[in-house]
Amino acid sequence: MLDTLTLFAGSVGGSLIVAVGCAVVGVFLVLRRIVFVGAALAQLSSAGIALAILLQSYGLSVMFFTDPLILSFLITLAGTSYFGVLAASDELPPDAGLGVVFVVAGALAVLFLARSAQADIYDLFFGGDVLLIPDEQLLILAAVILPVVLLYYLFSKEFLFISYDDQMAATLGYSVKGWNVALFATFAIVITFSIRTVGVLLAFAYLVLPPLIGIFAGSRLDRVFIGAITSAVVGTLAGFVLSVYWDLPTGPVVIATMGAILAIVWGSTRLTRRS
């Protein structure tokens, strides 16, 4: 087992950083019942990558703005600002706004790729090879995602308050729109870098499965975070080992492992409540 983890140390390290980052922001996505925001942001991020590929295929390069990661991040950040304002607004049903972004961004990603000659749709949606994370990307991930996790620790009460009871928060003078935009910006950062590293499917799984495991296992918010992070780490490590052992694609095995953990925790919770 250790041999496997040592052999793919860089990939395991990168995946663990992504896993922890997604698990932390995912707790808020799930508890705010806006998991679909994660899906919509993933689509926006994909559209950004596709647009960058399209621009590059036409030889259009505007400094670093046409780098897939940068353009993807900027577009996702713009989307999070929109969602942050939308969440604090009474004028539009939030799920309708999310639906619009999800379908339009998804369609644009496909159209951008259809016009470019450098990538295909499969690479976009399942790309980000877990086993081929270069060392420099590992450093970038650590430099970007770990500070986001630190922000959640520092501003835990602000993020909790505006998420749990925005009316009371506004009454006590909190800028609900401002904090919402900040919270959604953290979603953008983590989702963009995660998708670029491990692909849409695994990134989205990290956003949903570990937080659900934490919610089922933990009776308090701090324990929910601990449960989410722990299950993300265990699922990643076990997934790597099992994928090598069974000679199966790593990403789907990691997802299946976390799914199995979720089923066990959910079943245990049900049994405990009955008894």
Binding site: L31, R33, Y164, D165, Q167, M168, T171, I215, G218, S219, R220, L221, R223, V224
Partner: peptide, 15 residues
């Protein structure tokens, strides 16, 4: 301020 109870989502694991 005491909001309507239904405004607060019971999914949050808060004591």
């Amino acid at each position: 301020y005491v909001p309507q109870r239904r405004h607060l989502d019971p999914i949050w694991p808060l004591r």
